[in-house]
Simulated assay, not measured.
Amino acid sequence: MTGRATSTVLIDNDRVRVTRWRFAPGAATGWHVHEYDYVIVPLTAGTLELVEPEGTRDSHLTVGAPYFREAGVEHDVVNTNDHDFTFIEIEMRQ
């Protein structure tokens, strides 16, 4: 790993938090647990490595193709590409 991904909160209110995540090659979020349901919208195409309690797997992402996950996900997300990677995370507060 070559560093930490950077996050910029774009919207933060009682209903939703929207964050832009930027990863240099090799950068990672660090281990974390999602407390809310969330949607990821990739702004870059490529592969991210997901380090999860069960093991490690690759996630292949396409620009503009969102995915949803429920609260409770535990992982570290690592950019394994040779280019910067960016996505938008939308957390739905309840």
Rank of each mutant, 00 (worst) to 15 (best):
R20W: 00
V77I: 13
V73T: 14
E74T: 11
T80I: 15
Y38C: 04
Y36H: 15
G46M: 07
G46P: 01
Y36C: 09
D84E: 15
D58R: 15
E54S: 14
N81S: 11
V78Q: 03
Y36P: 05
E74F: 03
T47M: 01
V51E: 15
A27V: 05
T56K: 13
V41E: 11
V39H: 09
W31C: 09
L61V: 06
A65W: 04
A45C: 00
G46V: 06
V18T: 14
V39L: 12
T47V: 13
D37S: 03
V63T: 11
E35A: 10
T56I: 09
F23I: 05
A28H: 12
A71G: 00
E70N: 11
T62C: 07
Y67W: 15
E70M: 06
H75S: 09
E52K: 14
G64C: 05
P25S: 01
P66T: 02
R57N: 06
A65Q: 13
V39I: 14
A71T: 01
F68V: 10
V16R: 02
A45D: 05
G46Q: 03
D82K: 04
H60T: 15
T29G: 02
V77W: 00
V51I: 14
W21P: 02
H60D: 15
R22D: 13
E70T: 12
L43V: 04
N79E: 03
T44E: 12
W21C: 04
E74R: 11
W31Y: 13
H60G: 05
A24G: 09
Y38T: 01
R15G: 12
S59H: 08
V78I: 11
T86D: 15
E74S: 12
I40K: 00
G72K: 04
N81Y: 00
